[in-house]
């Protein structure tokens, strides 16, 4: 049986992969979407976005809901990286594209209750290449049965 959290992050990855210029977005970020990537990126892999479902809070024992249901709050960070001579402009487009994509399916193919965004941070660094990154925090609300997904 599928684990709901895994299905959610898989669906989020699939959703972000729809970010293409042909689909009406500013960028082709969807070509490089990763889950928990730890190895460094190379120039031909950018722009890229890495999904980290780092933490989760669980409301159990019926504090706000049924005693047999867990209300789960999944904290996800999306790390965007891009390079080029106009990275500040590019990174703003990438952020806009990610928010737009999430807005097209805030239940991630009916696997969660809602997806909300809580903010983002931009960083820029320059060595041989000028690179920029953005960290986008989102929260995914979903429910499962208590202790078991079945």
């Amino acid at each position: 049986m599928a684990i709901t959290r895994q299905t959610i992050v898989n669906n989020l990855k699939t959703l972000l992969q729809t970010i293409t210029i042909a689909n009406g977005y500013y960028t082709a970020l969807g070509s490089n979407v990763y889950l928990f990537r730890t190895i460094p990126m190379q120039a031909d892999e950018l722009p890229a976005v890495v999904i980290f479902d780092k933490g989760e809070n669980i409301d159990t024992e019926g504090v706000t809901g049924s005693v047999n249901v867990w209300n789960r709050v999944l904290n996800v960070t999306l790390q965007i990286v891009c390079a080029g001579s106009t990275v500040d402009t590019t990174v703003r487009k990438l952020i806009t594209d990610v928010y737009k994509a999430i807005g097209t399916d805030t239940t991630l193919t009916s696997t969660c209750i809602d997806v909300i965004t809580t903010g983002n941070q931009i960083e820029i660094e320059q060595e041989s290449k000028l690179i920029a990154g953005a960290s986008l925090d989102i929260i995914i609300f979903y429910r499962t049965n208590k202790y078991t997904e079945s």
Partner: peptide
């Protein structure tokens, strides 16, 4: 070689 770190992600850069 220089490993740039940006928003927690690594990028293979150089430092000329």
């Amino acid at each position: 070689f220089f490993l740039s770190t940006i928003v927690g992600s690594g990028y293979e850069n150089t430092n000329p």
